[in-house]
């Protein structure tokens, strides 16, 4: 049976979910080959249909729906977990329209949210995630669009939060904020997609039942070295939507994609959102 390559990021929420699968603690009929890459690389690879299974931003999923379908397990959605616009003290939100925003990638859900908020694509400079806050603090860019553990650490860089795009999304739609999910290339077939979903679900279940077990793997890959920040990251992004997207999660993703299509920010698709 073919080995399936599964791509995910080194972020704590992904490695927490995948640790048991990567370290061989899950019984599965399929053999998996993990490849870790940053989320923007995974997004770009999805556009090229490189991996059979991949974590990707929902912005990227919207661009590749003809070739990938979403799994029910492993997604990052939630309340109060949105990207933030940060700046040095003294700036205000009215400057955002004309400002230069540092952001971690062009296919990220964070960028899509900012585009929906502004009603157009922002003026942006792409950077490695870890370089964004230092660049804002040095005044090299006007604003930073930060995600993940940046929510917990921007104050340490002397920055202030001007806008929580998650709160804006929730007020505008009443739905949880969709950030990223795990998708399967449609050519692997529905049966394999189910097996992959079950394997990831088992991996996550094992991590939940033995929360200390995956931490060595998580900390080995996380750029954030503080275990407390890492734990908060996992608590925030690994939630009931990660266990099962459910109807509410599926509707939230569909809402994001349809709004992006209406705004002309991504192409439409007649294929179902889900892989099976």
């Amino acid at each position: 049976m073919k080995t399936l390559t599964i791509g995910y990021s080194p972020c704590p929420n992904d490695t927490f979910i995948m640790a048991a699968l990567a370290e061989g603690r899950v019984d599965t009929p399929r053999k998996f080959r993990p490849v870790l890459a940053d989320v923007e690389t995974l997004n770009q690879w999805a556009v090229e249909s490189r991996l059979e299974v991949t974590k990707l931003s929902f912005m990227a999923l919207g661009m590749v729906r003809e070739s990938y379908g979403l799994l029910r397990t492993g997604s990052a959605l939630g309340w109060g977990c949105g990207p933030l616009i940060v700046s040095r003290p003294g700036r205000n939100l009215s400057e955002l329209e004309r400002g230069l925003v540092a952001m971690p990638g062009i296919l990220t859900s964070a960028r899509l949210l900012l585009s929906l908020y502004l009603g157009r694509e922002p003026g942006s400079r792409q950077m490695v995630f870890s370089d964004i806050m230092p660049a804002v603090a040095r005044g090299e860019v006007d604003f930073g669009l930060i995600i993940h553990e940046g929510r917990f650490t921007y104050r340490q860089h002397g920055l202030i939060a001007l806008l929580d795009l998650g709160e804006w999304w929730q007020a505008a739609t009443g739905r949880p904020l969709p950030l990223g999910g795990i998708a399967v290339r449609r050519d692997v077939g529905e049966q394999t997609a189910r097996q992959v979903d079950e394997a990831i679900s088992s991996s996550l279940k094992r991590a939940r039942e033995n929360p200390d077990e995956p931490m060595k793997y998580v900390l080995a890959h996380s750029q954030e070295m503080d275990p407390e920040v890492t734990a908060r990251h996992i608590d925030l992004y690994v939630n009931s939507f990660s266990d099962d997207l459910g109807a509410a999660g599926e509707q939230a993703v569909a809402t994001l994609l349809s709004r992006a299509e209406e705004a002309g920010l991504m192409p439409g698709s007649t294929l179902p959102l889900m892989a099976y």
Partner: peptide, 22 residues
């Protein structure tokens, strides 16, 4: 070494699209 692999992966992302694994 896990810490070095993590740092190299971050550095590699500045040079190219990079993947880590076996």
């Amino acid at each position: 070494d896990k810490g070095l692999a993590r740092d190299l992966a971050h550095a590699a992302n500045e040079a190219a699209h990079a993947g880590s694994g076996r």
